[in-house]
């Protein structure tokens, strides 16, 4: 019960915070832009089925969530513990007859509800707006795929929230926690791909296989790459990407069944889920042992 009480307060704090409103507005605007992009693709005949709305183009929701999703997670987690320690409200919380894990559970649950709200709104905006314009209705299988993608995206964003929560616990300073979390996000989302390209240029021009191998190895160290791969595989039956490849090949022989797509998806999902579990577990261990004065 205490977990729910804390979660509801967290949720209320998040959705009324300026920082969340800015990110939420940004995500909503980008979702509408993504919808316009899909509509224009529909006019030139690129959008043939519902899943194309979500996967095609640089403005597709996969890219939006892949790159911006972590920012939402970080915004929800970077001060979750440190702010309460800095202000002194943590001691009032701890003096209540609750266990420390209840506090973390409440904060994670509150963050989860907020992520569902943000992600749900952007997905509904994008699909609703596009469907109304181009009139391609999703099949029941595509709806299931969309729900699965939605759940995977929640895990992806939640893993960044857990990471920033961990930095918040370790640093006990909001500013340090924010800087650390943002640096990690920038490094894995934007710098690692640059490093991958740079490493590939070291090899001789003709060693195409070597270049691909080195880029693959480097990019597979980033959560966002796993997210892209699993998203494409799970959303569209037209994709058949090797979980440990970096190239979005389309399945040209015949569309995959949902089970076949899931078989391709689970390794990437397992990696992202592992990150979430590791960050949450580390947060519990650190927070339960922490001596807060």
């Amino acid at each position: 019960m205490s977990t729910i009480i804390i979660a509801l307060k967290e949720f209320s704090d998040h959705v009324t915070s300026r920082r969340f409103l800015i990110l939420f507005t940004l995500l909503s605007v980008l979702s509408v832009l993504s919808a316009f992009s899909s509509i224009s693709r529909a006019f030139i005949g690129e959008v043939k089925m519902f899943s194309d709305i979500l996967t095609l183009g640089r403005l597709s929701i996969i890219y939006l969530i892949g790159e911006l999703g972590p920012l939402i997670g970080i915004a929800l987690g970077f001060d979750s513990i440190s702010k309460e320690i800095e202000s002194g409200s943590m001691l009032l919380l701890l003096s209540c007859p609750i266990y420390r894990d209840t506090i973390l559970n409440g904060k994670i649950l509150g963050g989860l509800l907020t992520i569902i709200l943000a992600l749900g709104t952007s997905t509904i905006l994008l699909t609703g707006f596009t469907l109304a314009q181009i009139g391609i209705a999703p099949t029941s299988e595509e709806i299931i795929r969309l729900i699965l993608y939605f759940l995977a995206s929640i895990i992806y964003i939640l893993s960044y929230m857990a990471l920033s929560m961990l930095t918040s616990i370790i640093s006990k300073r909001t500013s340090i926690s924010l800087l650390t979390s943002i640096s990690i996000w920038i490094f894995f989302t934007f710098i690692m791909p640059m490093i991958a390209s740079s490493l590939a240029t070291i090899l001789p021009e003709e060693d195409i296989e070597g270049k691909i191998r080195i880029m693959t190895i480097t990019l597979l160290l980033t959560p966002v790459q796993h997210y892209y791969t699993l998203s494409r595989n799970i959303i569209s039956p037209k994709f058949s990407i090797d979980p440990f490849s970096i190239f979005p090949r389309r399945s040209i022989v015949k569309p995959l069944t949902l089970i076949e797509s899931l078989n391709l998806t689970w390794p990437n999902l397992a990696i992202i889920t592992s990150l979430l579990v590791i960050f949450v577990a580390a947060s519990y261990i650190k927070f339960l042992k922490e001596e807060i004065r």
Binding site: S2, G88, S89, L92
Partner: peptide
């Protein structure tokens, strides 16, 4: 505690209600 803080944006009632529930 010597150093503590309530949730400043909440009213006295809202703060006490939150802690009452946790108690």
């Amino acid at each position: 505690p010597e150093r503590y803080s309530f949730y400043e944006d909440l009213s006295a009632y809202e703060n006490l209600e939150y802690f009452a529930k946790l108690n």
